[in-house]
Design a binder for these strands. Sequence first.
RNA 1: GCGGGAUUAGCUCAGUUGGUAGAGCAACUCGUUUACACCGAGAAGGUCGCAAGUUCGAGUCUUGCAUCCCGCACCA
Length: 726
Amino acid sequence: MNETFENRANLPDKLLKPYNSQETEGPIYKMWEESGFFNPDVCIEKGVTKADAKPFTVIMPPPNANGRLHVGHALFVTLEDIMTRFNRMQGKRTLWVPGADHAGFETQIVYERKLEKEGRSRFEMTPEQLYKEIYDFTIENKKYMEDDVRRLGASCDWSREKFTLDPDIVKNVQQTFDKMFKDDLIYRGDRIVNWCSKHQTSLSEVETEYLEKADPFYYFQYGPFVIGTARPETKFGDKYVVMHPDDKRYAEFKHGDKLTVEWINGPIETTIIKDTAIDMEFGTGVMTITPWHSQVDFEIAERHGLDKEQIIDWKGKLLPIAEEFAGIHISKARPLIIEKMQSKGLVVKVDNDYKHNVKTCYKCNTVIEPQIKDQWFVKMRPLADRALEAVNAGKIKFIPNNYEKIFKYWMENTIDWNISRQIVWGIPIPAKICSKCKKGYSDPDDIMTTCDCGGELVKDTDTFDTWFSSGQWTLLALGYPDSKDVDVYHPTSVMETGHDLIFKWIPRMVIFALYLKNEIAFETVYLHGLVNDEKGQKMSKSKGNVLSPIDLSDQFGTDALRMALVVGNTPGNDLALSKDKIKAYSKFANKMWNATRFVLENIHGMDLSAPIEFDQEDQISIDELKTLIKEITQEMEEYKFYIVSEKLYHAFWDTFAGTILERCKVKITEDRNAKSAKWTLYIYLTTLVKALHPFMPFITEELWSIIPQMTEDKKLLMIESWPESV
RNA sequence: GCGGGAUUAGCUCAGUUGGUAGAGCAACUCGUUUACACCGAGAAGGUCGCAAGUUCGAGUCUUGCAUCCCGCACCA
């Protein structure tokens, strides 16, 4: 009793109280950051890492500079930090590059709302003025996101942080465009885009969503045919009528036949087109086409070389081709058109119960109007072939590996990529367009004035699709092409990101690294799933089930949150995150704290420089520990963090604290000098604390600072070596 | 329609090359003798979606079916 009391007197006060994550985590992170060891150059300078050590590189998928982190971010920070810390402890030259994303459209929308509140509008500003304001706004907000990343314990090298609109990034992305233009991999062409008439921009597929809508479906008499449509307002220019070549009902009509039909504004000449795109089962099996405002119609028109006319302008109003309806917004025009058609006796019937999916803007739900627009395109085929070749040669490993198949499918079926966006907040496309013949030129140095045809060249006002720049991110984040970091740290070791990015991001990084540097972008792709709520439902603001990682960290500690995100979370699968699970790991943190208290009380005064002695029973336990370390080291290298974390949890709680500690307690009570027992406790504790460090970096670092060491030069745990398995 | 995934204890999920079914949480019983009640001890809980096949042996391999989720395509 007395001795215990005496021993306790030698322990730091904080160890005598329950573990307090809130008091611990802030100072620990500060200490790490001030040590400089997040930077591999510092590790080499201070002799922590050998200069010729193998590099291990992770590029952080840059979070939106303008937002706080959500639990999905917490998952990627945790996984990448585990890899980074593990490899650093293994003595590799370890670099994790943080970043911040300008998040193009997303941020512009946030800023537009702000402008709206202030009674302003982006349409009253010059693009340069708007860009500057959003830039300042974003840079100002960026620190909140960075602080969140710090809170989660990320051991990334802040000195190398990159923002996706840093001037050198902008310059280098524009250089890539120029190179691709000169290599004939970029061309300008007319294509259908998803046009949002509210935001006045085209949108990529991922920026649109489908909403089910019930609309009347009209059947109109069109000469000898009855055609069905849900969009009568597009029908003014319909001078082609299309049917399936095998449709016996219309066998008497031949491809290319012309006939005159009575239509909305009087008689028009129409041409018969036969095309297999027509579904004979749908409607009457006949349709008229509007190539300017429909992807399918556009493709039919391309196949047969048909005329394309714009019917609806960029604001959603009808053009002069609509004659008496010109200038009327399509939403108002529809009933007027139907009224006129009815008066002319052209309406055959109306199906009021027609449900279909309508593409809408994901931000404002405005119905997307397909429009033809002059855009820049990347020729994907030659680039995709190289990517396929690299993956087929086994140069890139996918975790889980079924994503390799998905990747290949995507690369085999890729279509040319539209990289033009009509938003201000992005990297400007360094191009000039001829105002006369519409020909486009790359002009990054802004020196061209006259087109080959003699027309005046004007600056392209569009910006790049965000994936054009983020596709180059493994290189750009390392300072390509000027920094020597590119030579040392590229190809990167792992790209860890969400499985939804298997289409959007992963292939583009593979393509650009091969194109620009003739290297794979990364050796391994690790894809995580979504973090859902405890019932497995997607977190969303409208459901009110969104958990903030920062709140969870306040409540339970970052270490507990990290464990809850990792244990049992297999790659590629979605995770159900419950507060109960996080709470369980905060109890675990306390268990570690209390067990350490017991060990330190009991080994007090033990000579740590004396030879290690184990009796037979303890030797078996030590051997088991070595076996465990061997197993988990291999599993760490295989990225099986979900199993390693669970094994360490049980090794600490059940094996160590539950069994060995109790056994040693008895021995020490019997013999105060029980060396074998004391050494067993010490070795177990220090080994498990080390092994747990990548998962629970804060509490392990804190414990490490309290535990007496065998060697004189006491280091931070983050740069200690990973336990040996021998 | 094409592709991918899932189906194991009440819930959320592990289960590596085939060899007696696992964890966390929840629920149950008992216990506060000094690391820890943010604890300990104990018990309970599953025809591994269904059917067939390969095998001495199948949660695991093969085939078919069912249900669910996700992605892509289509929607005049």
